[in-house]
């Protein structure tokens, strides 16, 4: 009987969308941790900050979303890449 009451209400669709975004966030974070190719790990962190910014905007926090967008998209990626040039691309 409970299952029959689960029609497609707006709240349910909203929560399903948020759940898909959260799932992608966790998968991208795990991807960037277990990856042996460190360039791909940096790309994974870039994806994490991308999804995180949308989630902050979903929670009505535009200040935090803007900070995450301004810092996480370009600057941290560039600084990580400079550090990667000084070390090596593959992890032993």
């Amino acid at each position: 009987m409970i299952l029959l009451q689960w029609t497609l209400t707006p709240e349910l669709l909203y929560q399903a969308g948020t759940g898909i975004l959260l799932f992608l966030l966790v998968v991208a974070a795990i991807f960037s941790v277990v990856q042996k190719d460190l360039l791909m790990a940096i790309v994974g962190t870039s994806l994490v900050s991308l999804i995180l910014s949308v989630l902050f905007l979903l929670l009505h926090a535009p200040d935090v979303a803007l900070t995450e967008a301004a810092i996480g998209v370009a600057l941290t990626t560039a600084i990580f890449l400079i550090a990667l040039r000084k070390t090596g691309r593959y992890e032993e």
Binding site: L39, S53, P62, V73, T77, A78
Partner: peptide, 24 residues
């Protein structure tokens, strides 16, 4: 005011791709 975030993304989103490409 929320559209400011989209404005920032539209102009800064390509910088990450360009830096990774220049690294490669």
């Amino acid at each position: 005011i929320y559209i400011d975030v989209a404005l920032i993304y539209a102009i800064l989103g390509f910088m990450g791709i360009v830096s990774i490409a220049r690294w490669m």
